[in-house]
Design a protein around this nucleic acid. Structure first.
Length: 271
DNA sequence: ACCCAGGAAATTC
DNA sequence: GAATTTCATGGG
């Protein structure tokens, strides 16, 4: 069991159930159980201390990075709040969100699955992907399958996932990643537009999926994914503004706005 | 029956 | 080139 120093600006529900990761489930006591990096754990907050059951001391840095504990989100919110009054409102409402550092390949696959889909069904498809092709862990849960494992599959093999037209995209991603035709590690350091182009070599990966992969899988927090919710929010609340106007922490601003708009759908009705 | 969901590719104009 | 249609599946 790992225990971290007391921390502010962390809400597990806002962070783990806000549509950036699809592998966490809430328990009756408001802790969350999930798998990341092949480790099955349960996380909870006790007196503002993050506690991770099932993790050992050797993984302290891994989980600190996963929950982005070293970034001062209070300072980020202060900076963002100065940009626009609605962003100030949204960042206050969603102040407990942190941008996770997920496994790059997992982020890539889950956001390929996300296209023209809803969060509930995305979770089901991801769960079936892990159960069918991921390594089983000691407690019976499943790791996310590797690109190498998935590259050995045929599109038909993914039928049990019921992923529809996205199955062929997953196979293309697995093959290009496992053969090095797409280098996920380079996407951490390439100039932003080049990193996005690298990911878009995969069939089924456009700008939005590439942006989500960069933001949630490579911690490129300048990324500002525009999905249907964000396009509505931008049209209603930020007319004339573009992603570049949100600065170096655009991705965090995006998550604040995304969460705020999903929790207040009536404010962003289509005209 | 129709519409929508953290879109992108294929087709048509 | 820009606008529209198609692609699978499941819930409201």
């Amino acid at each position: 069991m790992l225990r971290f120093e007391p921390i502010t600006d962390l809400d597990l529900a806002q962070t783990l159930d806000c549509g950036q990761s699809f592998r966490w489930t809430e328990n009756p006591d408001h802790s969350f159980s999930g798998v990341a990096f092949g480790r099955s754990v349960t996380v909870r907050l006790e007196n503002n201390m993050l506690c991770i059951e099932g993790a050992d001391e050797g993984d302290r840095a891994l989980w600190s990075d996963y929950f982005d504990l070293s970034l001062n989100y209070g300072a980020v919110r202060e900076q963002l709040s100065a940009l626009h009054p609605v962003l100030k409102e949204a960042s206050g409402y969603a102040a407990g969100i942190r941008i996770l550092r997920q496994e790059p390949y997992e982020a890539l696959c889950t956001f390929i699955i996300s296209q023209n889909n809803n969060i509930k069904r995305i979770k089901g498809i991801v769960q079936r992907l892990c159960e069918n092709f991921g390594e089983q862990l000691a407690d019976g849960s499943f790791a996310f399958p590797s690109a190498q494992r998935m590259a050995a599959l045929l599109v038909e093999d993914l039928a049990p996932l019921r992923a529809g037209f996205r199955a062929k995209y997953l196979i293309d991603a697995a093959r290009k990643v496992s053969e090095g035709e797409v280098d996920l590690n380079r996407c951490f350091t390439l100039p932003y537009e080049e990193a996005r182009a690298e990911l878009m070599k995969i069939k089924g990966v456009g700008q939005k999926v590439a942006d989500c992969t960069l933001l949630f899988g490579m911690h490129r927090i300048e990324a500002f994914p525009l999905d249907v919710w964000m396009k509505r929010a931008m049209a209603v609340c930020f007319p004339g503004m573009s992603p570049g106007d949100f600065g170096a922490y655009a991705g965090i601003a995006q998550q604040y706005i995304f969460h705020y708009s999903r929790m207040h759908p009536n404010l962003f009705k289509k005209t």
